[in-house]
Design a protein around this nucleic acid. Sequence first.
DNA 1: TGGATATACTTGAGCAGTCAAGGAGGTGGC
DNA 2: GCCACCTCCTTGACTGCTCAAGTATATCCA
Lengths: 158, 158
Amino acid sequence: MTEHTGTGPSPDPLDTALRLVRAQTALVKRFDASLGGLHGVSLSDFTLLLHLAQAPGGRMRRVDLAEALGLTASGVTRGLAPLERIGLVTREAAARDARVAYAALTPTGRDRLAEMLHTARQVAADHFAAEQCSPEDLTRLSALLTRLGATAPGQRIG
Amino acid sequence: MTEHTGTGPSPDPLDTALRLVRAQTALVKRFDASLGGLHGVSLSDFTLLLHLAQAPGGRMRRVDLAEALGLTASGVTRGLAPLERIGLVTREAAARDARVAYAALTPTGRDRLAEMLHTARQVAADHFAAEQCSPEDLTRLSALLTRLGATAPGQRIG
DNA sequence: TGGATATACTTGAGCAGTCAAGGAGGTGGC
DNA sequence: GCCACCTCCTTGACTGCTCAAGTATATCCA
């Protein structure tokens, strides 16, 4: 069933998908260990802060943050809470719409993020280097993953 | 943030890593939706059953299962519980070591897994096809991910 | 033989996310 | 102006994992 006539080994999509899951698990563990040990945050925290930093004004609506992170709104609420508690993020009201509560990076948050970025870059570089991933491999991988991660919004699945 | 080093776009390892995380999230959601809807199991459940099926005798020690799945022992205990409850897996004692409790696929479990496998293959194929991933892309991706997955899942599926 | 140590597994507490429900605020038809 | 409906966000209950601690069994070695 998996056999497929053609050039080279048959590229089993299921096998590839499961490898992707495995690879991500390993990667996340590595990030969590380094970021947690050095800065007391998880990879999710870091990603959240990174998105805020890249947004104009260093602030975003929770809804947009959810969309950007691939989480639900409640996931964002819960993820933001500890970051507010430790002062990396603050809550800001919107002038024209009392429903929205912006999440905004504090100056402290920006500073701490800069340090985290340094760590994160190193972890990523180390990880790929350790697996003997050449720059070309990386480029190809990045391109493929971009396509695979692109579809975020709700797609019906039967 | 984006530096250029000679040939092509610079392959930022951190960016690639974050894309990998994103791609996996999307993939897992898709598998969970299909496997859950059609067979009432999650991707984790499916992966667990698949590993059992590939093991000699259709059974494995919990510790080895944990290693194979990239989980802790307690994660395996908890993941196995519902599968035992619905009769897809049973607990088997080991003859020469009273500490070990094998997890063994039941005949029902094997049958149900065959159906799940059909669904899972289709989901994987659809997912990569939808992202315009050519067979060559898939082969390359698989090769790269195998290296990144540390302890390679190794075995072929079928 | 028996005590120290190592291994296999389970359990309690906790964390990060989900969904479903609900409150508060905005918007449009009449 | 009013009321139905929509959006933004939070909360409660749950899942699925983690770690730390505990139990039971095995093994090593004096």
